[in-house]
Design a protein around this nucleic acid. Structure first.
Lengths: 219, 219
DNA sequence: AAATTATTTTAGATTTGCCTAAATTATTTT
DNA sequence: AAAATAATTTAGGCAAATCTAAAATAATTT
């Protein structure tokens, strides 16, 4: 069984690797977890010993099969708890992250399966991120970054890249949530900001490229 | 803020002191928490330093006001989570303790208030123990140990002293739960076992004094 | 290719919570 | 009241996870 800290390292590596694709480096992990690089090196040796990561000095790390499975389990728990907090306890989507960071470490397989059932087997969390199933399988939605599509295109908000509280609060304010329909009326060449229509209403708003770069919409 | 371990010590002291009445001794705490007496002494110094306990060498400890408040907060969380597990996630009353032991340490005032609301402000947990309110106030039910009442007496099961899985499973089997009406038909002088009627049915069963000593009924 | 810069690792400490073994204090027995 | 026993504390250490400072390695620049 993994310690609280080990789980956090494994999760950080999973995220930094782009869900397991790329190698991850010491400095990046230390930044993600707000620790020092030396601490990361110590932990990488420990995780390598436990065969959770493939580690070669100075070469970065990747997760092993077993490490990947552990990461997906923690992510599953995190996202299910987020659904619980938003759907059942009426939290806003910008308030749930810190609490889910704690809840994700609760150890009980039965608990998480019962929670999943109670929530009626959600496929996505409140930010649109997919919830891995018991076997770590993820349902991938076909989607593109809003910033990558052309004028005239329309789609539904599927997922957010950035989930900071300030970003989520801004989206609340302008009326964007998961499932909101967005139509791109015009892209300003100068700054790549977009003039969009929300849910086929008459209201048009302008969003900066910093915003459109962080919203995925369905294809 | 208290560490996970400190919270467990404070909670153990609260329970061992009979909810704050008596002095508590090193050996008892070490037994309760499955640590060694020397470890307890270390922690008592630390908790005294933080003004959570009154500690005098060799004399035992008591909780301070602040220690008592911390204990009640952890107990509140533990019991609310137990209600959640039983009422919402369909756990049996003998399965919830270990999970609640973990959940009770999650830090978020908002979470616990929202959970309380979601559960519709329960006053008692699945074992009949009272749930302290936000201010640490407890609603005391008037009750007596089943073993302390006379033949002919009847009352409703209010609370259990022992909450081990084996005891709870036995109660399940013989049909006793919180709220069950029990009438004492006869007490066997030899072993103090009791012949009882459950919920005014025609079925009579015999329970040992080990059982009757662990069931509280309403006065 | 040598020098500079950036990244990573090693070495040695620190803190928290725990341990064992020995010493101390309190309690009980004779 | 002295001896024996029980409870508690002290002293010294260990493991996990962290840190700082110094050394080693890799990458980049000139």
């Amino acid at each position: 069984m993994l310690s609280y800290t080990e789980e956090n390292y494994i999760k950080a590596i999973f995220h930094l690797s782009g869900d397991g694709e790329k190698d991850v480096f010491t400095n990046d992990i230390s930044e993600e977890l707000a620790t020092k690089p030396a601490s990361v090196t110590d932990m990488m040796k420990k995780l390598a010993q436990k065969e959770l990561v493939n580690y070669k000095k100075y070469q970065g790390v990747t997760l092993t099969k077993s490490g990947r499975a552990s990461a997906l389990k923690v992510i599953r728990k995190h996202r299910l708890w987020e659904v619980f907090l938003v759907e059942k306890l009426k939290f806003n989507w910008d308030e749930v992250h810190e609490i889910a960071e704690q809840l994700e470490h609760i150890q009980s397989n039965l608990l998480i399966e019962r929670l999943d059932e109670f929530l009626e087997f959600p496929a996505y969390d409140p930010h649109g991120d997919p919830i891995p199933n018991e076997d770590g399988k993820i349902k991938v939605k076909k989607m593109v970054l809003l910033s990558d599509v052309k004028e005239g295109f329309a789609g539904d908000v599927a997922c957010l890249k950035e989930t900071s509280s300030s970003f989520l609060k801004y989206l609340d304010k302008i009326g964007i949530k998961i499932g909101t329909n967005i139509k791109i009326n015009h892209i300003v060449e100068f700054d790549s900001s977009m003039d969009i229509t929300i849910d086929n209403t008459k209201i048009r708003i302008n969003i900066s490229s910093d915003v459109s770069k962080n919203i995925f919409i369905t294809l």
